[in-house]
Design a binder for these strands. Structure first.
Lengths: 152, 152
DNA sequence: TCGATGTTGATGCAGTTGCATTTATATAGA
DNA sequence: TCTATATAAATGCAACTGCATCAACATCGA
């Protein structure tokens, strides 16, 4: 029982910074993608996981675990990705309910083009502002804020 | 010209942590409010700014600067807050286009009840996980990531 | 084997967001 | 003064999100 009802001033400041900075960074990264005529960040997250998964692909519920998106969100996002030809849905042999999602060549290409822009955003917005040690320190501190209930 | 096209591994890790942790924290805080039958975080942000502004109130464009919400977003959020009786819109003497937004007694009360829940979330999710020094360190690091173009 | 329960993924509907545009007023410059 | 431009705020429309529920299949226990 270490929880307090009222947060300390330090906690409030850190929270406020975190909220504000993360919003700004997301917005900047989204804007950069938009300006290049590329799809939004959410698409990247999914394409990234699928690219890492390789030919075996992933089940939608695995994407939910990895990306933390809501189930209905993934369902519709995958529908859009499929409509764009970036992923394909395959039936699963031993489970008639499910499907396996696999990234297509076009999907890999889109991911690559997105990374060219997204990666530059990360380099500019974060890499260019803090030293490697500072970045490690920040990762460590943020890591301690992770929800233990969520694998990560 | 210190920008690089490809971010360092440290930058990528820090970015990923920041994205993931901030999403989790927002979601947890939103859930706590929802469970208490209270309005979403965005309402708190606006009510908070208006409460700080006092009787003089704020113009919508000032709220946009402070909260970083989009113009149309503020416009509609204020319409909802007004419909709920949490704020009132007053004409501005020397500018016929504009209006001044002032928080009502009911608005203050709602903000108070939201803070009881929101503050506990902050205390639990952040205050309880890091020491005061660590929180200060994190605020300082995050502060260096702020967009210089945005007052803050 | 069969029914109860659990899991996977989709979807109808209402509410919200994003984009572009509009309306109304203010300000600056000829 | 009168027109052109800028600023404040609202809004129509399409896309997206959240919620609840559903349909389809799987699994477990009697």
């Amino acid at each position: 029982m270490t929880e307090k009802a009222t947060p300390s001033p330090e906690a409030i400041t850190a929270w406020a910074r975190l909220m504000r900075v993360s919003r700004q960074l997301v917005e900047n990264a989204e804007d950069a993608l938009k300006e290049s005529g590329l799809p939004p960040l959410a698409w990247y997250d999914v394409l990234h996981e699928l690219a890492e998964a390789g030919e075996g692909g992933l089940r939608p519920f695995q994407l939910i675990e990895r990306t933390l998106f809501a189930q209905y969100n993934i369902s519709r996002l995958l529908a859009r990705l499929e409509a764009d030809g970036l992923v394909e849905k395959l039936p699963v042999a031993d489970d008639g309910r499910g499907q396996t999602i696999r990234i297509t060549a076009k999907g890999r290409e889109t991911r690559r083009r997105m990374w060219a822009v997204y990666g530059r955003s990360i380099a500019d917005l974060v890499g260019g502002k803090l030293s490697a040690d500072e970045l490690k320190m920040m990762s460590a501190l943020l890591g301690r804020l992770r929800d233990p209930a969520v694998l990560d």
